[in-house]
């Protein structure tokens, strides 16, 4: 168990180092930071001074080490566009994205698994087939179109819900939350559905196909031959086996929620890190891009670690192998 976790953590650290290298290379080679930071009126002396100040005259490895050191301490430099430290901007923006991601992730997982199991068990039924067809439309509809559609119906035509922004927020420490006000909650509804719907359809289709596969397995046939009830077979034997692969992919899906948040945030002008990132790309604001990359890779790596641990808890085969090693 311990060795297993340590090995996993070790791999995570390597992933982070690689991502750090990518982020740092962006810093170093995409566009010239000097160009970005000094205006047109510059002298060679200014350039040289800034070069030394930024450490750009030092060897690559030293610069990378310094970058990592800064990154660990949350120091990603100054945004080219806003002229403020990137870390401050990120801290301001992160709560909006996290709250949105949390709500839609929760919706996607619970509804996705429930509907997936339903459509797998009742695969001949009318309701299940309707759900499957609708879900295919869901997969084919780009997230931004879903968002626009929802805005058109609920904001423009029905005028029920706000079409952009977070509504009123309340500060708890440095965390601004929209959960505590009515307008904040109202503003959350459409973006959360937009972001969750696509993930939900994916999870649902995945659960269904995994479950159908498990239902064909020999041990399910044997369970049937022993006269166990369909309920026990479906919800005890099949579901648990289905969860093993589903957990991995759901973990990946959760990661992509944070990425897809970029789209949702753009459509709804939601003031989160996704919107920040897309603006950074348009203006080639490298420090913000690099910081965003590091931030979400930390999140992904954490999610993956949790997934691995869950996996480990569910599948006894892993436990024994781990003990043997």
């Amino acid at each position: 168990m311990f060795a297993y976790i340590v090995r996993r953590m070790f791999q995570s650290v390597i992933v982070l180092l690689v991502v750090g290298l990518v982020a740092f290379s962006m810093f170093r080679f995409v566009g010239d930071p000097i160009d970005n930071m000094l205006g047109q009126e510059r002298t060679q002396a200014d350039i040289d001074r800034l070069r030394t100040e930024l450490g750009l005259d030092q060897p690559f490895v030293v610069q990378y080490a310094k970058f990592l050191q800064g990154a660990v301490q949350g120091n990603f430099g100054v945004s080219y566009r806003q002229g403020r430290p990137v870390s401050t901007i990120l801290i301001e923006r992160a709560p909006a994205t996290l709250e949105l991601a949390f709500v839609s992730g929760f919706l996607a997982i619970t509804l996705g698994i429930a509907l997936g199991v339903f459509t797998a068990i009742r695969r001949q039924g009318i309701a299940a087939n309707v759900i499957m067809t609708v879900s295919l439309i869901g997969v084919s509809l780009p997230t931004f179109l879903i968002g626009i559609l929802l805005i058109y119906i609920f904001s423009v035509e029905l005028d029920l819900l706000p079409s952009f922004g977070r509504g009123e927020t309340v500060m708890i420490g440095s965390w601004s939350t929209g959960f505590l006000t009515a307008s904040g909650l109202k503003a959350l509804i459409l973006p959360a559905i937009t972001l969750g719907l696509y993930q939900m359809t994916l999870i649902m289709r995945l659960v269904r196909s995994e479950m159908l596969e498990v239902l064909r397995a020999d041990y399910v046939r044997f369970a049937r031959a022993r006269g166990l009830s369909e309920r026990v077979i479906n919800f005890r034997h099949a579901l648990k086996n289905t969860l093993v692969p589903v957990i991995t992919i759901t973990g990946l899906q959760l990661g992509s929620i944070i990425a897809f948040a970029i789209i949702t945030e753009t459509v709804f002008q939601w003031p989160g890190v996704g919107l920040l990132f897309i603006n950074a790309i348009q203006f080639v604001d490298i420090p913000v891009m690099a910081a965003y990359l590091m931030l979400i890779s930390v999140m992904f790596v954490t999610i993956n670690l949790i997934v691995d641990l869950l996996y480990y808890a569910i599948d006894p085969r892993l436990r024994v192998d781990a003990r043997a090693t």
Partner: peptide
């Protein structure tokens, strides 16, 4: 595996962003 941890759309955006910078 590492790339799969990062959603395709994000990877595409990053590559686009880098290319734009170059």
């Amino acid at each position: 595996d590492v790339q799969l941890t990062f959603p395709a759309i994000l990877v595409a955006m990053l590559i686009f962003g880098i290319a734009k910078g170059i």
